[in-house]
Simulated assay, not measured.
Amino acid sequence: MIVPQYGRTLSAEEWSPVIDALLEGQHFVLTTHENSDGDGLGSEVALARVLKAMGKEVAIVNPTEVPPNYQFLKKLYPITLFDKKSEEAIQELSLCDVVVLLDANLHDRMGSLWPHVSFAKELGALKIVCVDHHLEPDDFTDVMVCESYASSTGELVYGLIYALQERLGRELFTPEVAEALYVAVMTDTGSFRFPKTTPYVYQLAGDLVSKGADASEIYDRIYNSLTTSALKLLGAALSAITILDDGDISWLFISQDMIKATGSKLFDTDLIIRYLLSVPSVRVAVLIVEMQDGRTKASFRSRGRIYVNQFAKKYGGGGHMNAAGCLFQFSSDKAQMVLLEDLRLFLKNQID
């Protein structure tokens, strides 16, 4: 099989350590980060179907539930939610010899799975493989491909599958694999709007459509299937947005009271941050969400050369240059006080 030559791709040799691990392993658990998104979910579903077609035993086990607008992916491949009472998930983890982490490069992003994976790793019976596109990876895997040039993890998995086809000499793409990868790439490029949407990415998307992905149907399922509670939360949130510092900062705090009053859930907050950067003068958008367990989730978006991943890193978070986040282990009141003061200083230094 010929790898498409219409953009930057990793060579078969560069993919070789990942491919070797996939060929040598027999029982796989695929997972992604907490509060999963389209890129993580689409990438793991696509790779799961490919591994299954190769005769492997494959389970997808995630630390948090699948958001409603991505539930259709579970029809392409079963996704198990991990918790301490989930006997099925615990059994899958105990049996597997390879864990593949997709769309995350820090072990703590695996959430509740990490202690179990770490324990099995210490016993020497488990190999950890990571495929990701975020900055500043942690050193906790046996094999890692982390390429920040990529628009999405889906873009990398697409290249991996072509490299696998070249090694095996057989076709591995199916309409279902194409659909899952299209979800991954489309969502992490903001429907092909973000800066890393290169000509290669557009041609990649066209290739996936030619292989069976229905672009309009996928978009409709993801973006036109909001629940009533999510819409109520959106309405409440939009009225609470604050513009600060002569328009440089847009700021929104979502409390547990707001979430409960609208009957929404944590993952419903993810659709809101895009609106915070819609004011042309805004350089940095901040979304702060009070979590049920008392912790505080913060998400950042920025324009141009305002590298919010560096800001998030200060609090143990990370992400992309213009899209990042972190998790505070303390109350939202304290988080807001700390954040605003630090953000103003950070933004001043970035501009100066």
Rank of each mutant, 00 (worst) to 15 (best):
I2H: 10
M54H: 01
S229A: 15
D246M: 02
E122Y: 02
A184I: 08
V209W: 03
L244A: 10
F140Y: 15
A104T: 13
K265G: 05
P115S: 08
I60D: 00
C130K: 06
S216V: 13
Q91H: 12
A125H: 11
Q336N: 04
R283K: 15
L51I: 05
A324P: 10
K121S: 13
L339T: 12
S94K: 15
L73R: 09
I218D: 02
D220R: 14
L160D: 01
G316L: 06
F82A: 13
K196H: 09
T187N: 09
V282S: 08
R109D: 01
E44W: 02
L208W: 10
A48M: 08
L327F: 05
G124C: 07
E34S: 09
Q5S: 14
V100L: 13
G159W: 02
L234C: 05
T141K: 04
K196P: 03
K74H: 09
S151G: 04
M321P: 00
Q91T: 13
V98W: 10
L208T: 11
K334G: 00
P67A: 01
R305K: 15
F82T: 03
R274E: 15
K260T: 11
S281V: 11
K297T: 10
L276S: 06
T32H: 11
Y223F: 15
F194L: 14
N35C: 03
T9K: 08
S332V: 14
G206W: 06
G206K: 08
T242M: 09
